[in-house]
Design a protein around this nucleic acid. Structure first.
Lengths: 128, 128
DNA sequence: AACAAATCAGTAATGATTACTGAAATTATA
DNA sequence: TATAATTTCAGTAATCATTACTGATTTGTT
């Protein structure tokens, strides 16, 4: 039952911590393969899931149908570029009181909220 | 090139307008089958997509990995119940100025935002 | 070193969604 | 109203992301 060390999991964690671009499982797989050429895609999925459950990663869904992962587990917002698909961190302060505001007109318990912006990112503006 | 009438599409539109619970394609399929026993799931997907492109529906992603659809195309927020999976409309006012606020600290064009709450809905509180 | 348990690589299965195909329905035209 | 042109359909196959399975390999413990 105890968690055992695995070099693959360490590599995935290292890679995730070095990234600010919220990779998907497939993207992690592609990169880790440079270091571990015969790592399995299933191993990547399993460890991303495990690390998420351990609270070392957070799963991000920005509306493109893919699961993105983020080693920054603090509450912060994201931007999704409709042009290139990039997922970018927003610098703005989180609206912590919004759960309370929403609760006033809602019958139920609000535990969290997710705010995602979308549009065209700085790199894609010249092209469009 | 012109759009032609189809009773299946009308039925799907009618059904969607009668609903406030943001059905998925599969859910629409199950219900429409009462009226059209041999409608195809592909037809449902195609028409939901088409109606969305025509602006008669909006596609909603609340983080459960499924595409939900809503005949209310106005900007409004949703709640996702982690217990039963229900997608519920929020009554709160939209924060229209938030795109402008976010723009101040972001390099790019913010076209829209999506705010989704999650937790436990009123019906599920007694059970938990 | 030897054992038990977790993890792995590789592969198969799943579930949602999309694409394909020949038949049926709809609209336009004669 | 018959016919032709085009869209839409039902049914099925394919795709894509993700999850589950299996026997072999690693890891932590005695």
């Amino acid at each position: 039952m105890a968690l055992k060390y695995s070099r693959q999991r360490e590599a995935i964690k290292e890679f995730m911590m070095s990234r600010k671009d919220h990779p998907t499982a497939d993207s992690v797989y592609m990169h880790i393969r440079n270091e571990y050429p015969n790592i399995s895609l299933g191993t990547v999925y399993r460890n991303l899931q495990l690390l998420t459950e351990l609270g070392e990663l957070q799963k991000i869904r920005v509306g493109d149908g893919l699961d993105h992962f983020d080693a920054d587990t603090s509450l912060h917002y994201h931007f999704y570029c409709n042009e290139c698909g990039a997922v970018i961190d927003m610098n703005m302060d989180c609206i912590r009181e919004i759960n309370d505001i929403a609760s006033k007109t809602f019958d139920g318990i609000i535990e969290s909220h997710n705010l995602t912006f979308s549009g065209i990112c700085g790199k894609c503006i010249p092209k469009s």
